[in-house]
Amino acid sequence: MMPDDLRYSREHEWVRVDGAIATIGITSFAADELGDIVYVELPEVGAQLKQFAGFGVVESVKAVSDLFAPISGTVTEVNDALRSGPELLNTDPFGAGWIAKVELADATEPEGLLDAAAYAELTAG
């Protein structure tokens, strides 16, 4: 089940908006597809994210995958727990496995993303 309070990109990232700050991460669908995640390359605090551009990397046992920013903005915080516990992306992708907090460059951007129902449809079957 995809949480209702989030917005989703077609590249399987999620966004939780809280005022001017958006928390971003990867969806449970993406985590399952990747398999056991063993490494996350996080952006640096202060990095400028551009919507749909790459901002980091996740590696599973078998493969390397890019992370694509679901929104544009400035990174204000990263989830340091992922450095020693990348498996949080598998076990709790919508919670403790969040990746970064971003100060939104454009407050309307999240509205252009998919809602939970549309994302569930995208990933069905």
Binding site: G35, V61, K62
Partner: peptide, 9 residues
């Protein structure tokens, strides 16, 4: 089959 549940497991 590349994996059943988890490669690490």
């Amino acid at each position: 089959p590349v994996q059943y549940a988890s490669i690490i497991d």
